[in-house]
Computed example of a mutant assay.
Amino acid sequence: MAEVVLVTGGSGYIAGWCIAELLRGGYEVRTTVRDEGKKQAVVDAVSTVVDPAGRLGFAVADLTADDGWDAAVKGVDRVLHVASPLGGADPRDPDALIAPARDGALRVLRAATRAGVGRVVMTSAANAASPSSYATEGVTDETLWTDPDDPTLIPYRRSKTLAERAAWDFMDSHPGRTELTTVLPGAVFGPILTTATLGSVGIVGRMISGAMSGIPRIGLEIVDVRDLVDVHLRAMTSPDAAGQRFLATGEFTWMTEMARILRDGLGADGRRVSTRQVPDFAVRLAARFRDPSLREITPALGRRNRHSTDKARRVLGWRPRPAGETVLDCARSLIEHGAVQHV
């Protein structure tokens, strides 16, 4: 009999690919949605790459409430907790981000340990294993924990750190059959299954459409969504992954490099991509006087810190693809799905 894997937040970008690859791998999959009305959208998205008939089921459960989680994990062998309840939160309010992320993870773990689930793989973020200072250069690994008390941290980084820390603390105090593994991705790009949940790939869409007329001096550790799912599945099944953190970042790539990759690789479809880099001072001035939303990115200007994926490569045999391939596949997928307006 095939193992049953629960994937949280089935309508999400990463979750959709997790569901698809699990089905391709012969697993039976159950996924959570916040309401019944989201089921068909998940089926439609997954159906673009694999037939889910008879092997995909649903449970209604919300990370912000206790109801439904025991039913969601009943009869489940493993859990991929990839969902995050941050979509509607005000990113400027620390509590609006921290409480849902932390409490949602604990709801999943409580239900999983009660049900005796074999392993939970939780998606954290590389931002939870980063030096507090964005100015720090060098390479860090999973042994580093971001300091959540650093007053310079943006709320998102603090929320991801505290949520993962709470998960490990919970497991330390709940010995039993259930094992925890965490995966800490970088900036996730790659092909889409649906235009309904674009996530971070919207950045590429803005570049292609010409909406981003200037590029800030920001570097991203780009990981392909397909490679991120691959490392989740490896972490789910490898005996050596139990109780471990795994960074899953990709090549460090400046956004201006991304722009050049798109402009050079897309032909006529890349004609609107701007490669003009905006000076740091201009971004800071705009954040202060014209666009407060830019305040979230100003600490990252010029940051060169990178993360080592040696552990995932050594323990799990993980091999991510080049960033340029991911960026172009992402762009072509957006164009194919009609997610970019060309004039």
Rank of each mutant, 00 (worst) to 15 (best):
P148H: 08
V7H: 11
R234P: 01
W168L: 07
G12D: 02
G75P: 11
L328H: 03
R288T: 11
G186L: 13
Y27R: 12
P191H: 06
F170G: 04
L180A: 04
L334N: 14
G250Q: 10
G302D: 08
V73F: 12
P239R: 08
W254M: 10
G270L: 11
T253E: 07
G324R: 14
T48S: 14
G199R: 04
T326G: 13
W145P: 05
V33M: 02
A101C: 13
V327A: 15
P239D: 03
G210Y: 05
T140V: 15
V49G: 06
L86Q: 08
S11F: 06
A41L: 14
V79S: 09
R306E: 05
I14K: 08
H81Y: 07
W69I: 03
S200Y: 05
V201T: 15
A105F: 09
G270K: 11
N305Y: 00
G199L: 06
S209R: 15
G202T: 06
I222H: 06
D149A: 14
P52V: 04
W17Y: 13
E36D: 14
T309G: 05
L86W: 03
P175M: 01
A96Q: 10
K38N: 10
V117G: 15
T194P: 02
C330M: 02
T298H: 12
D66H: 11
A196N: 12
E325D: 13
G324Y: 02
A211R: 13
E3R: 15
L109C: 08
D329Q: 13
I19P: 08
S124T: 10
R313W: 00
P148K: 09
V5I: 10
L228Y: 05
T48Q: 14
V43H: 00
R157E: 03
P185L: 02
R276I: 09
A126R: 12
G25F: 04
V183L: 03
R30N: 04
S84C: 11
S47L: 00
A286C: 02
V278K: 08
Q40D: 15
R165G: 01
D291W: 09
S308G: 05
D310A: 15
P100N: 10
S213F: 05
V117M: 14
A41C: 07
I192A: 14
P191F: 04
G265I: 09
R234M: 05
G267W: 11
A72H: 01
E296A: 15
L109S: 10
S200M: 10
A83D: 08
S238D: 09
D103S: 11
W168I: 04
D62A: 03
G199C: 04
A312H: 06
A83M: 09
D44R: 12
L233N: 03
D67W: 02
R321W: 07
L144I: 07
R295T: 12
T140K: 01
R78I: 02
